[in-house]
Design a protein around this nucleic acid. Structure first.
Length: 949
DNA sequence: CTGGGTACTTAGTAATCCTAGC
DNA sequence: GCTAGGATTACTAAGTACCCAG
């Protein structure tokens, strides 16, 4: 309800008015209609180009003043411009209701002059003057009737609370910090686990000094963890002065515990010792990534193996002999026919692009008919790849049915081939390489409505590959007869090899695997940065809340965008090349048509975001945000125009950077996800279930995880697949109940007197088992049996063939299928007479009763399972409600579930701490690879139950 | 700025592995 | 043993961010 309503803004008095209310999440109402649209429709509608209002089109006024009537004749009149384009409309009357509020927007318009100038970034700082916000009452959400509210709303409230708390917490932290600092001045610090280089100059600049968080905390009395960066602990251990820079000398010094083998891990290569960089001193200059780098280059895709002569494509029914090159392209197409997902092949754009490229190959390399005459391939529809496909399928089949030994041999061969590329040596340490394989040629599968989807991604030659390697290292030998495009020794780059792909000219890099030190370090850095944001978030929020009313349009837009990014976890929204990429947006690139406003304070977003995933949600926003959005949509703006015509991601990030070095829009996602998770986990302490079984605890954790996922609208949910599964489960249960009923009837068949004994009711059929359903179910059972028998038959035959025996004739199959006929007849009879003949040998009432018990048991099991899922469904459902059914593309797998959640945003140390604190093995949360990837997190807070985000 | 170029993270989906339940 | 379906991994597309020259 009226959550935010009134307090709106009394401008001066409460500068931040209602802002901190965070409904990160969105409230409820979803536009049913939109959520129902099919994906295709969405896309179609999204497509609708901008309608250009009369002559005024894209005037590029991006941050500049606009005079009325001025029009830029050059600018394109549509925003279909090719490159990264953003078109804004000319003269918009920005006067508006800047600050005010309560009144109807319409009438407000007092013309305040708003300078349109761009210059204004400044205000921020000075904005500061105001009094602090009355922190909470205003932030609190009215509790009221929330009961019925959708999960999202409740979560929103939670988020609001968390935000509030964040503000408070930070004050505490600051106070502590201040104290500590003061103390530090006076006395040297106590030892800290790693010697942080804090005292190092740290360059005045804003070098990113990420606090070395993890360290300090536990020992410090303060406990509250904060990164002490400010002062340098003089660790007890050796101090690593400049050494750090060198990377190599890692410090042996770890404190107490894990000083496993104490030798210093030198750069010496064979040292298998694990390098615990998280215990090593920070380097002051991390732009140099390595001193020495050795690796064996890349593994190329295998050569194309031509099809046997008799396997051909047919055109208009005639066999075609394709040139090798063209044949290979055809196989790319064929390869996609087999997969369960034909959907690409049905996509008209995909077909068109494929065919255009295929034709080119044919033109260039040729295709002949049976007589050897050159032929023209004019249409994809007339191409018949079925023979090729059969061959392909057979080959796959053969592979599958290899014997164990054969499979093992194949694997051994493959391993041997890969072995040299698996690892590299990075400053003397062996590190796993991530994608050492050069991407093989194939058809480009651009997502969403990508204009180039279906085009041929060509084979990459050594001549296109640049190698990055240490100066002293041996340069990998390119395949015989070839050479590398270039070999460089860039110590600031972390990639080992690079090339550009032919479709979009995108760069492809061979980098280290997720479990490597460099990747771990940057992950660590990412989370430390997010933790650091904690210290600034309150001010940032206060400022943008204030700027929501700025008279400077650019500032107001920026503040509004920040609000959305912070509360709704929108992505930054860089500009994109509208012509050669799918048309998707993020915050800064939202367009007029992507939001619609429902007074008094609801905004519905409907756009395609990253990966063309639809974001369709309705959120309740701060009234000022609502007003701003309305203002930003004011005529003459119309479809196709940028909502934030005076803002782009660089400006936004530049502004953010002024608060904290290294702060960018994406940090908000990390911060909000991790921080929220942290708070949720904390609250778990008071939940009795947190003292329950492992399974219960895991579930609790997963629930938190799930909430965060929802809050961030991170991973999407459910989808048709899930629903279907539920359905299936339900049907299985129903089927069992049907069998139970049949079994009961059998009792009557054996001993009619039981009817009296047990009472007629006992033999009644469940109500929902109506005739129609039963018929259907019977059919299902019959079909199931049939396929089973057929399959078995085929299998048996295969075995016989393999043993060189003669296969059974079709007749045998027929005979076996006879059983189906009987089954059919039996059902028919049952349906007619309402009786069921007892099955099995020597059926007795006792035996039947036992059977019934067994069925009951199974029903119970399934029901529990269903309930389990129901719990999930609860979330899933709500999620889908909140998220408003992001349509899952057909056939799309249903991702999101307890496991693969916001893995990229939640600090793994939170999970580790939870695991320790509640005594749940970490394996329950992280799979093997994840444990490897998060080794740093696991080890660094191993004995620090009190580590906090 | 702007636009091109580059490096690196995030994320959907396909392929493969694994396991519970016949 | 076999298989369906969930879990995990592999692959690579699609973002973000930042730098620099004009």
């Amino acid at each position: 309800m009226g959550t935010y309503s009134s307090d709106d803004d009394m401008p001066l008095a409460r500068p931040n008015g209602s802002l901190s209310i965070g409904n990160w999440l969105i409230a409820a109402s979803i536009l049913v209609s939109s959520s129902k649209k099919s994906r295709a429709e969405d896309i179609a509608s999204d497509k609708s180009g901008p309608k250009k209002g009369s002559g005024m089109a894209g005037l590029s006024i991006r941050n500049g003043p606009v005079e009325n009537g001025e029009m830029d004749l050059d600018s394109p009149s549509t925003n279909g411009s090719k490159r990264k384009s953003r078109v804004s409309i000319a003269q918009i009357n920005y006067k508006d209701e800047s600050e005010s509020d309560g009144e109807p927007l319409a009438k407000r318009q007092r013309s305040k002059k708003i300078r349109e100038s761009d210059s204004d970034d400044e205000p921020m700082v000075k904005a500061r003057g105001n009094k602090l916000p009355p922190s909470h009452k205003e932030t609190a959400l009215p509790e009221s009737s929330s009961d019925e509210q959708p999960l999202g709303v409740k979560l929103a409230k939670k988020k609001a609370d968390i935000e509030k708390k964040a503000e408070k917490d930070i004050k505490v932290i600051r106070a502590k910090e201040a104290k500590a600092k003061a103390k530090a001045k006076a006395t040297p610090k106590k030892a800290v686990k790693n010697e942080s280089d804090d005292d190092l100059p740290l360059a005045s600049s804003n070098k990113k000094r990420q606090s070395n968080g993890s360290a300090a905390k536990r020992k410090s009395t303060g406990l509250k963890k904060e990164e002490s960066d400010s002062d340098a602990p003089i660790s007890k251990k050796s101090k690593p002065p400049a050494a750090a820079a060198k990377g190599k000398k890692a410090t042996p010094a770890k404190d107490t515990k894990d000083s496993k083998k104490g030798k210093s891990k030198e750069a010496s290569e064979d040292d298998e010792e694990e390098f615990e960089w998280w215990n090593a001193p920070k380097r002051e200059d991390d732009s140099i990534k390595w001193q020495n780098l050795e690796h064996n280059g890349v593994l190329f895709a295998p050569e194309y193996e031509p099809l046997p002569k008799h396997v051909k494509m047919y055109y208009d029914g005639q066999p075609v002999t394709l040139s090798l090159e063209a044949e290979e392209v055809a196989t790319f197409w064929v390869a996609m026919m087999t997969a369960a997902s034909t959907h690409h092949l049905d996509n008209p754009i995909f077909r068109k692009n494929f065919f255009a490229d295929f034709s080119d190959f044919i033109k260039k390399y040729g295709a002949k008919d049976a007589k050897g005459n050159k032929i023209d391939i004019k249409s994809l529809e007339r191409c018949d790849f079925s023979k090729m496909q059969e061959y392909w399928a057979a080959k796959n089949e053969a592979k599958k049915s290899m014997t164990k030994e054969e499979k093992a041999a194949a694997k051994a061969e493959k391993d041997a081939l890969e072995a040299p590329y698996l690892h590299c040596t990075w400053d003397g340490r062996k590190q796993k390489v991530g994608n050492f394989r050069v991407e093989p040629p194939s058809l480009f599968r651009g997502r969403g409505e990508h204009p180039k989807t279906g085009k041929v991604k060509t084979r990459v030659l050594p001549e296109q590959i640049t190698i990055n390697i240490g100066k002293g290292a041996k340069v990998p030998t390119p395949p015989a007869g070839h050479k590398w495009k270039a070999v460089q020794h860039d110590q600031k780059a972390t990639w080992l090899a690079m090339w550009q792909e032919n479709i979009n000219g995108a760069y492809k890099y061979v980098m280290l695997g997720a479990a490597s030190d460099v990747k771990g370090q940057s992950d660590f850095k990412k989370f430390e940065k997010a933790r650091e944001l904690k210290k600034y978030i309150d001010k940032i929020r206060r400022d943008y809340t204030k700027d929501l009313k700025s008279e400077i349009m650019a500032d107001r837009q920026r503040a509004t965008a920040m609000y959305l990014i912070d509360k709704l976890a929108l992505r930054a929204g860089n500009e994109k090349d509208t012509e050669n990429e799918a048309d998707t947006v993020g915050c800064c690139s939202l367009k007029y048509e992507h939001i619609s406003l429902q007074p008094p304070d609801q905004v519905t977003f409907d756009f395609l975001g990253k990966d063309s995933i639809r974001y369709n949600e309705t959120a309740r926003v701060d009234p000022q945000v609502f007003k701003n959005l309305k203002l930003f949509k004011k005529p003459p703006k119309t479809d196709g125009d940028d909502l934030f015509d005076r803002l782009n991601t660089s400006q936004l990030n530049k502004h953010l950077n002024s608060y904290m070095p290294g702060l960018t829009a994406k940090v908000f996602r990390t911060y909000n996800a991790s921080h929220t998770m942290s708070e949720l986990l904390k609250q778990l302490g008071s939940d009795p279930r947190s003292r329950g079984t492992i399974a219960e605890k895991v579930k609790l954790y997963n629930d938190c995880n799930r909430k965060v996922a929802i809050l961030c609208n991170h991973k999407r949910t459910v989808g048709a697949g899930h629903e279907q599964q539920m359905q299936k489960l339900g049907d299985r249960i129903k089927g069992l109940r049907y069998q139970k009923w049949r079994t009961k009837k059998m009792i009557l068949d054996v001993e009619p007197t039981q009817k009296k004994k047990k009472g007629a009711a006992y033999f009644e059929r469940d109500e929902d088992l109506d005739d129609e359903w039963i018929k259907e179910h019977q059919q299902f059972l019959i079909d199931e049996q049939r396929t089973k028998i057929t399959k078995k038959f085929e299998k048996d035959n295969e075995k016989l063939t393999a043993n060189k025996e003669r296969p059974m004739p079709e007749k045998e199959l027929k005979e076996r299928l006879q059983a189906i006929k009987e089954l059919e007849a039996k059902f028919k009879k049952e349906n007619k007479t309402g009786k069921v003949e007892a099955e099995g040998r020597g059926p007795t009432v006792e035996k039947l009763l036992v059977a019934i018990d067994k069925i009951d048991e199974r029903i119970r099991v399934l029901e529990t399972q269903a309930e389990d899922r129901d719990g999930n469904k609860e979330v899933a459902l709500s999620t889908s409600k909140i998220v408003s059914l992001i349509n899952t593309p057909v056939g799309a797998a249903n991702t999101e579930d307890a496991n693969n959640r916001p893995q990229n945003y939640i600090d793994p140390r939170l999970t580790v701490v939870f695991s320790k604190k509640f005594d749940v093995p970490i394996e329950k949360f992280f799979s093997k690879t994840l444990r490897d990837k998060f080794r740093w997190a696991i080890k660094s807070v191993e004995d620090a139950e009190d580590w906090e985000f």
